[in-house]
């Protein structure tokens, strides 16, 4: 089959909504885009363990502690599913981690904000996971098979994350005045970064057009963002939280909430490494990775001697 035939077949496959599988022929650019997107998604899950991990030792009840720990564990698990999906494209996890440490691979900018109070754990679950899930539900129909299957699994598991976050916010809003203040403060700090999670507006998004064509992305940044806003504003009002946006208004004609302008300058600053926690998050990850080197070396060395011992047993 000529390259041209292969491309034709690939395009038909995409057109007919069939999945691309690891061993199928795919355009080099598709492979690259897929690796970039999946590894970025994986890194986001893993780095996302840090801001929440920051509160796991201080969670106020045993129940809260268990829930938070299970949630962080899920995030690690999701990172793992995603690394596996990316590995089917011919890159190994070590290489992806190297790219992350060298700053060549990105992760979601949201995790470069600090989790300052316990209410932030509520806000992260409700807003950050809430935004992530809107995106992930859409990605269940992405064209690359292993990624789509990973998303199905992740969506199934993540459904409790947003609820646990909202539950914390509800408890805080029903609590003493300090708790209410804490909840509103978390809302004020996390609302805008959560909206930025969907990426730049459709007109400015570099990757969107090609990704939509290849059905890697199924819906545009702005469409997904709007879906999140419409769901979340009502949830905020329901428990008496104010949305920190003086321009926010409901458009009766369209049935949508309209927000003020997002500060995209801040978004690009954070993406480019100048958020409050970029440096800290990366340092943390690099340290854990390097500290673990002797453990991995030992495990590999042990496996090697075991193999040799077994060979000896057989020849004897």
């Amino acid at each position: 089959m000529t390259e041209e035939d292969k491309l034709k077949r690939f395009n038909i496959c995409i057109e007919q909504d069939e999945k691309i599988e690891p061993k199928d022929w795919m355009p080099e650019q598709y492979r690259k885009t897929m690796i970039r997107q999946i590894s970025q998604h994986a890194h986001s899950e893993v780095i996302g363990m840090q801001p929440e991990g920051n509160w796991v030792l201080r969670a106020p009840t045993l129940r809260a502690k268990k829930i938070l720990l299970a949630k962080i564990q899920d995030e690690g698990g999701h990172g793992l599913y995603l690394y596996s999906a990316a590995e089917t494209l011919g890159i190994d996890r070590g290489e992806m981690i190297k790219q992350l440490h060298e700053g060549k691979a990105k992760y979601s900018s949201i995790f470069n904000y600090p989790a300052l109070t316990w209410a932030d754990i509520g806000a992260i679950g409700w807003l950050v996971d809430g935004a992530a899930i809107v995106n992930q539900v859409s990605l269940q129909r992405t064209s690359y098979g292993p990624y789509a299957r990973g998303m199905v699994r992740i969506c199934k598991e993540e459904s409790f994350h947003q609820r646990q976050g909202y539950e914390i916010m509800v408890t805080m809003m029903n609590g003493i005045s300090e708790q209410k203040k804490m909840a509103q403060d978390a809302m004020d700090r996390w609302w805008w970064p959560a909206l930025m999670m969907f990426g730049p507006p459709d007109g400015e998004s570099v990757h969107t057009k090609q990704s939509m064509q290849w059905k890697i992305k199924r819906e545009s940044n702005d469409v997904l963002r709007q879906r999140f806003i419409d769901k979340t504003v009502d949830q905020a009002h329901f428990i008496g939280l104010e949305v920190p946006d003086k321009d926010l208004k409901f458009n009766e004609a369209t049935g949508h909430w309209e927000t003020g302008t997002i500060n995209w300058k801040e978004f690009h600053e954070v993406i480019n490494g100048n958020g409050p926690c970029n440096h800290q998050r990366m340092k943390h990850h690099i340290k854990a990775h390097n500290d673990g080197k002797w453990v991995r070396d030992a495990a590999l060395a042990f496996a090697e001697t075991e193999k040799n011992d077994q060979k000896q047993l057989i020849t004897n």
Binding site: Q50, G53, V56, K65, L69, G79, A288, D291, R296
Partner: peptide
């Protein structure tokens, strides 16, 4: 729980 996000490999975390 202090090991959270500090494990030698993600699986061990």
């Amino acid at each position: 729980a202090e090991w959270c996000s500090n494990g030698p490999i993600l699986e061990e975390d």
